[in-house]
Amino acid sequence: MTRYIIRRLVIAVPVLWGIITLTFIMSEIMPGDYVDALVPPNLRLEMGVDEAQLQRLRESYGLDKPVIVRYGIWLRELILHGNLGYSFITGQPALQEMAQVLPATLQLSVVTILFSLVVGTSLGIISAIKQYSVLDHLLTLQAFVWISTPGFVFAIIALYLFSLKLPLFPTGGRAPLDGPDNIFVRLHYLALPALVLGFEGLAGHMRYARASLLEALGADYVRTARAKGLPERSVYLGHAFRNSLLPVITHVGLSLPGIIGGSFIIETIFVWPGMGKLGMESIFMRNQPMIMAMNLIGSSMVLFANLLADITYAWADPRIRYD
C-alpha cells in the first residue's frame, strides 16, 4: 500500500510541474501585462505617461527581465510564499480574492453534490434492481435528458418556469438586498441554482451506480449467496451493495474539484457570488493573474482529487495495488 501511494505521488510531481509551467506559458501568451492594466494603453495620453515612464514601471516590476528569469521568480514566489500574483482590478492577492468568494461556492456545491449523489445513486440502485422494467427505461431516459441539456439552457428554462411563470423562487443572488436574512431565506435563494446543478450531476451518479450494481449482481459471490438461500434483502445489503458502491465513492472523489471550482455559467446566470462568477468576471475583464490563479488552483485540485480517488480505491479494493 505504501509503495503504491509513493508511486502515485512520484507520478503526480511532474504533472504538477507541468500544470504550473503551462499556466505560466498561458499567462505569457495572453496579451497585456501588469503595466498595461495600471496604465491602459488608450489612456496613456490623458494620464500623461510617456514611454520612458512605462519603461521604468516595467523595470520596477521586473517585467523587462527575460522570460526564463521571470519564470524562476514566479516559481520561487509560488512555492516559497504561495504567491499567485495580484488581481489587476482590486490589487488584492489573487489567493485572498478567491478565499473571499469560496464560502458562497462551497455552500452551493455541497448542497448540489449531496443532492445529486443521494438522488442519483438511489435512482441508479432502483434502476438496477428493476432492470429492463418500464421504470428502468424511464429513469434511463430522464438521465439522458439531463446529460443532453446544457446547464445554461436548463437554468434559463428553470428560471422561466419557477421564478417568472410561477414566482416560487428568487431569480438570483444569495440573499435579499434588504429584508430578513435567516437560514430559510438563504435556502430559498439557494434552491433553484442548487437544483439545476444537482440535476446536471445526477445523471452521472445514476448511470454509474446502475452499471456498477448490475456488475456486482452478475458476480459469482451473489450467485453463491442466492444459492445458499439467503433472502434477497441480505443478498443486496450484505453482498451486492457493499461491493458495487465502492466505485461510486471514487466518483464522488472525482467531483471534489467541482465543489471548489463552482460552475461558471450557472453562477453567472443566478448571480451567485462564488468562484464561478469570479472566474467569469476575471475572464471578461482580462484580469490575467486571477485567471491564471484560478486555472492553477482548479487543475491542482483535479490532480489532488484523482490522487485521492486512486488511493481510496486501492485502500478499499486490494486487487488494485498489485497491477
Binding site: 504533472v15 507541468g18 461558471f264 472566474g279 475572464i283 491542482s300 483535479v302
Partner: peptide, 12 residues
Amino acid sequence: FTDVMMCFPSFM
C-alpha cells in the same frame, strides 16, 4: 502531457 491537460478544467 495528457495528464497535465486533463487536469485543467476544460471549460475554463
